[in-house]
Design a protein around this nucleic acid. Structure first.
Lengths: 251, 251
DNA sequence: TTCCATTATTCCGTATTATGGAGTGTAAAT
DNA sequence: ATTTACACTCCATAATACGGAATAATGGAA
């Protein structure tokens, strides 16, 4: 029972996608019985769906008859990443050049935050961000910047569904407090994050408005380097680049 | 009419995958009518499938009502890449540092060769390899290294099914000649490729034995730089790294 | 602005298609 | 050799996806 069947959708397609996501969540490989147990579907049904996915290389069968994600997903993932914002990398590199800290571009994917563009800082100590990684939005500056663009009810819905895990001491875990926090983000037009995702890491984010899909531009670095002075210097730079990105990603 | 319906497969799932691939091939976005035309399926059918994919974030609808690949594909693509062997990149970078030429890691995916890891040469003129790209194995050093591990009948089956397109003047297009060629690869333990994929490009590959899935490590560069001296120097380095990779990817 | 052509979306009766219980095959464990 | 556990196949059933026809939304032309 991974996903609810939506009205107007195609059942078997939904089930096939469930299988892909199930395998992904289970660390990359799964036996047929495990899928059957996890999804609540009988073995023959699972088997037929898996067979279809294997025929098309979306899954592959390992020598021990277990199943793993297939290679056809790789080019699709790359293409999707491109379509989102890899054309942004030169702009992100620009931010890094001018501020010296890692820059990221993130989008809301359903209820989670996904990183779609990234430029690492040249410094040895820097944030490591995996493109395509899905993370909880409540403990990231970029997540706040994006959620601040939704109305409170929508935000509450998201927080309800995915929860607010306490990642560090500073993580906001109370929905009411978070919503209040978002109000300040809306006022300032900038989202801050002080060690809510990782101790000693400070992030700054602002929304890229006007683009195709709602994106947020963020920078992150260790507290020692993310001084108030740097933050003040960063905001106009980020605003400028966010504007350029909005134009660039609109077409 | 993108793909033939296989026996035992689920029709609607196949059609959904067709749509994803269609959009990928069409440069990332498509209107419903275009999909309908390209697939030969009526609009309502396409619409229902697309709807299912949009609900699940495998597609997203742009403001102009066209459709593009969705963000849910990104983590799946990453996971698939990982499952294949992208944890290899530091080792590949090592090869590049020591030899100065681009290094790749490739696997057989069904009958085709797929690149699962890559480290580009620092030189301006270098091979451009797209991760996840599927190519014919007969005109790549890595493909030869992998096919050399199969028996001749299996190789003949693959060549039959995917064909041996003549990519350059040097491409081997005769199955018998190719099989004979593989015998030499087995003797030497190294696969060579002299401009069979692109004029003036020389590649060298050897198998990574012992890993989970059969992989091949290759380097490639322009003929002017891939001198006999470099090749001789390269082979022990590659053998060493291939050994390390085998250990690393076994767990 | 209105009109028209094009495309997206919804409806719904039909029968094609996916379903899953029962049964067979296979490989590893005891 | 026997058991167990899982992968895989078959096939009658009906639930599900299908697609023709109708409707709504859109963007461009007059």
């Amino acid at each position: 029972m991974t996903q609810q069947t939506r009205p107007g959708g195609v059942q078997s397609v939904g089930r096939a996608l469930d299988i892909l996501e199930l395998i992904d969540q289970s660390g990359g490989e799964m036996a047929l019985v495990e899928m059957s147990a996890a999804s609540g579907l009988p073995m023959p049904t699972i088997h037929r769906l898996v067979r279809t996915l294997v025929d098309r290389n979306y899954l592959r069968q390992l020598p021990d008859r277990r199943y793993a994600l297939g290679s056809r997903l790789i080019p699709l993932g790359n293409a999707a990443l491109d379509a989102f914002g890899s054309r942004s990398s030169s702009k992100l590199a620009d931010v890094v050049r001018r501020l010296g800290e890692s820059a990221n571009l993130a989008a809301l994917d359903g209820d989670m935050l996904v990183y779609v563009g990234q430029a690492p800082s040249p410094r040895a100590m820097r944030m490591f961000t995996q493109l395509g990684q899905h993370v909880h939005p409540h403990c990231r500056a970029a997540g706040k910047a994006l959620l601040a663009q939704l109305d409170d009810d929508a935000v509450r819905g998201i927080l309800d569904r995915v929860g607010m895990p306490k990642v560090t001491e500073a993580t906001i875990t109370d929905p009411d407090e978070f919503i209040e926090h978002l109000a300040r983000v809306r006022e300032e037009g900038v989202a801050h994050e002080y060690g809510e995702m990782e101790d000693g890491v400070i992030c700054l984010a602002l929304p890229v408005v006007g683009g195709v899909s709602r994106l947020a531009l963020s920078i992150s670095g260790p507290a020692a380097r993310m001084t108030d002075a740097l933050q003040e210097r960063a905001i106009p730079v980020m605003r400028e680049v966010a504007g350029e990105l909005a134009v660039q990603l609109a077409g």
